[in-house]
């Protein structure tokens, strides 16, 4: 039972008081803004939740474990997420002071 986009949309509808279409539009828009920011390699810091950042990975030699083939993994950019301390404590049941 995962929290999906559809569930987020219906929850926001009741919590914020929006129509279904409005809720869908704002959720999609927030996700688009977040994706645009990361696509421009700009970090995204959501206080109380965490930080998404783009990290540059160098090219390296790799190996396909199934075929045992050697291959070169090209340099690439990846998204990494670091959980905020506040959320980490909440997940571990530690109350804030």
């Amino acid at each position: 039972m995962a929290l999906t986009k559809e569930k987020l949309i219906s929850r926001l509808q009741t919590q914020v008081g929006l129509s279904k279409q409005e809720s869908r539009a704002v959720v999609e828009r927030v996700l688009d803004i977040m994706k645009d920011s990361l696509a421009q390699s700009e970090d995204l810091l959501i206080s109380g939740f965490g930080k998404f950042s783009v990290r540059q990975k160098n090219a390296r030699r790799g190996r396909n474990p199934q075929t045992k083939e050697n291959l070169i993994l090209r340099a690439r950019k990846v998204v990494v997420f670091k959980t905020s301390g506040v959320l980490r404590n909440r997940i571990n049941g530690i109350r804030a002071h």
């Binding site: 999906t4 986009k5 996700l31 909440r90 997940i91």
Partner: peptide, 22 residues
């Protein structure tokens, strides 16, 4: 509200799946 729903899901050990984002 969006991030609070997501945070609460994680506190409940629930997965979050947002197609296209992660």
């Amino acid at each position: 509200a969006m991030f609070e729903n997501m945070a609460e899901a994680l506190v409940q050990k629930e997965r979050i799946e947002i197609r296209g984002f992660g």
